[in-house]
């Protein structure tokens, strides 16, 4: 399995759409066989960004905030996405490797499952995972 985490200053990068660096980890039989930092190639568009991940044969992506069209492209590429995750990148990776990773424990502020948005009267926050491209409770497909 190939896992990618967008990182910035040792933490999960705040916005996937503009993230500059990926930590790429390859796991085989529960053992890390590859662990490297990779830069996104220059100032690239959204489509190229998702294509780049596909080219890197990424199975699972852990990242910060991601805009809806990009999330849809990622899901359509068959990548399992854990988005709106925040925190120390090393700690998140560790949790992922030992099987204790739980999205809810690392949600960015305002993104907890079932939380209502303040002020604008929109739907609940989000929490999503899975390859089926389905969005969590907060996503409204348009």
């Amino acid at each position: 399995m190939r896992l990618a985490i967008t990182v910035w200053n040792g933490r999960i990068a705040p916005v996937f759409d503009v993230a500059g660096t990926l930590r790429l980890v390859e796991l085989s039989g529960g053992v890390v066989t590859q662990d490297q930092l990779v830069s996104f190639p220059g100032d690239i568009g959204m489509f190229s960004r998702v294509t780049f991940l596909s080219q890197q044969k990424i199975d699972v992506l852990v990242c910060g905030a991601v805009s809806r069209p990009v999330h849809r492209m990622l899901a359509d590429s068959g990548i399992e996405v854990h988005s709106f995750v925040s925190g120390d990148a090393e700690e998140v990776l560790e949790a992922f490797l030992n099987g204790s990773f739980d999205d809810a424990a690392y949600f960015m502020p305002g993104c907890g499952r079932g939380r209502g948005r303040q002020g604008r009267g929109r739907g609940a926050g989000i929490g999503r995972r899975g390859r089926n491209g389905g969005f969590g409770p907060g996503w409204k497909e348009v």
Binding site: W8, R11, P14, V18, M108, P109, R117
Partner: peptide
């Protein structure tokens, strides 16, 4: 869309989540 209780004490980039961070 984030309450101040959730925001205070957190990293600003993780609350603000801007393209500029």
């Amino acid at each position: 869309g984030i309450s101040r209780e959730e925001a205070i004490g957190r990293e600003c980039s993780e609350v603000f989540r801007s393209s500029m961070c």
